[in-house]
Nucleic acid binder design. Structure first.
Lengths: 333, 333
DNA sequence: CTCCTTCATGTAACGCATTACATAGCATAA
DNA sequence: TTATGCTATGTAATGCGTTACATGAAGGAG
């Protein structure tokens, strides 16, 4: 594999011009004679030359590459967001690289370094487990945008939804359907969104004067289907079973549905279920899942736009996007 | 954002040594006095210096970054493979970057260039729509491994399963259950795996002297849930409905299941369904899905090992891994 | 005391493209 | 014809780390 591509000097030599002229041809400078241009272009073709991104970045401090940090690609929640990022980036002649951190700090570091070293022009982070301090440090001198998950101090621009209000609406929907004993399957409350959604849950209960019971709140370790099954299993062990469940993610909710069915109960009549995220599969489950839809594509697109603006030294402001409650069979069979 | 990290010369100056010495300290060269080492390390700490990957790559032709090309991250099939790649790569001190091509040739090009330009050390491609010619060209002088999808001419090393045999077993399973009218929901037969799975399907039918009917073969455009629904809908319009379906992907199969249920039929009694891939959700569908499990993690891990070996100029051979038929409710309720 | 070895450290070239500045050449006007 | 301006092109510095080779000093052997 010890192969060297032709470089700019070889092209210059072959074309009988200087490297500067070759560079000018490459960059479509106006001040090149058509005759010279042809000579250079011929040499480029003959040598099969392609300019090195490495040399170019070194000189320009620009790679036109954006990094997108996700904790795990197995979470379908990110799919549409990435779509939005990708499409927007392409439109502005940027490319994106997906970086799966698996919440491993060493890996984070490498990606941060890529930005520091001009291997990438900026980062969109969707990783809630990221090292806040390091990211904040990075953001002092480089372009960083937070997407979906964010930091409350607000020093890094973010785009997200109003988690508290979304959770509030989801739970209110259950209450209006006549459900009183509403369980919450929440994820790890280290995460901001988890704390906010819990707040919304409690707010709805309080508003309708339903007592908040710690027994009805189950915190999972991760967001997998299996965690949902597990959580529901625990909730069904209660003497007086819940009549509704709000799960902070669709994967959890689908797991809960599965367990409800396994225990011989029926959704929504015995237990109604609301999820969160409106992932593709929420429409394929049986029953189909009532859920909160985040404007994921738009969120991604917005994040990308913000990042590109920031790279171009424009002022950017954090944005809250609207969500939507999508009512399906799991609450209104 | 116009910020410059300290570079090696500044560290050298501060420590009162030459850049060479700093570089030696950085690379743990033995020939540095403990005293000098301390001086340099202090300067590094004080300046908050981190070596530039850019300069280093430029010089070393090594980035310790691997590219993983996937057509679309929305396909859960890739999740476990990527896991395997990632874990193996990390073990060898490599990092991976996920590149979603969306089958856009322009984007492919950028990623190919990253390799040509030493921004990455090699590529694992899982994209069946990739430009074969360009990839073959790239592989002449750079490290490339194909994973899951491959090219028959064999000039690029690959790791995959025996698709024909897997399909054969899936269909044989249906036949043994007493099903005679077995439909095939295949994807676009431009793809090698699709042609191979069809071959296996036909082989099983022939072996049991069941006539092959073009009517029972439906080709989808993509692999989405919705394509599966659509395909099943068409198949259910037939006068004599199929009594079993083999779908070449779980997402298609789950779509088919959904449509079967929607039309008032029951799986597996009326129509048995077998999928392919054993994605996470195949265990959550209702009924759970009989499917072919590919050793995805192992496939990824193998691909990564092969790539790293190739980067280190070792000889690598293509590998066929074993698959497994996982029997669940959709064929044996 | 001199010569040679050994080891720590320094010097400078290299990899690649960009671009400010310099220069050559030509054309136009006086 | 000479001076002046303009344009096409070239020269060389720059960004950053690595490493072959050079150099210097110190220590040992004679």
């Amino acid at each position: 594999m010890g192969f060297r591509m032709a470089n700019i000097q070889e092209v210059a030599k072959k074309a009988g011009v200087s490297v500067a002229t070759v560079s000018r041809v490459l960059n479509h400078h106006p001040s090149v004679t058509p005759k010279t241009r042809v000579k250079v272009e011929t040499a480029i073709r003959e040598l099969n030359y392609e300019p090195s991104m490495l040399g170019r970045n070194l000189r320009n401090s620009e790679s036109r590459l954006l990094l997108v940090l996700i904790p795990s690609i197995s979470n379908p929640f990110y799919t549409e967001i990435i779509n939005g990022i990708q499409t927007t980036a392409i439109k502005h002649r940027y490319n994106i690289l997906l970086c799966e951190t698996n919440s491993d700090p060493r890996r984070e570091n490498i990606f941060f370094n890529m930005v520091k070293n001009k291997l990438a022009d900026g980062i969109i982070s969707m990783d809630p487990t990221i090292n806040r301090q390091k990211l904040t440090e990075l953001a002092e001198h480089h372009s960083v945008i937070l997407c979906s998950e964010y930091m409350e101090d607000g020093s890094i621009p973010y785009v997200t939804i109003d988690n508290e209000r979304a959770a509030y609406q989801a739970v209110k929907h259950l209450i209006i359907l006549g459900k009183k004993k509403i369980a919450l399957i929440n994820s790890d409350e280290r995460f901001l969104y988890a704390r906010q959604r819990r707040k919304g849950y409690e707010k709805a209960l309080r508003e309708f004067e339903i007592p908040i019971s710690e027994e009805l709140i189950y915190n999972t370790h991760e967001l997998n289907f299996h965690d949902g099954v597990q959580a529901m299993r625990m909730l069904l062990r209660m003497e007086e079973k819940p009549s509704a469940v709000f799960a902070v993610s669709d994967t959890l909710a689908i797991g809960a549905l599965k367990e409800i069915k396994a225990s011989g109960l029926k959704a929504p009549d015995d237990i109604a279920v609301v999820g969160f995220d409106n992932i593709h599969f929420s429409n394929m489950s049986n029953p189909t899942l009532t859920t909160i839809a985040q404007p994921m594509y738009k969120m991604g697109a917005t994040a990308a736009t913000m990042l590109i603006n920031q790279i171009q030294s424009k002022q950017v402001e954090s944005i809250l996007l609207d969500h939507e409650l999508i009512i399906r069979e799991s609450t209104m069979g």
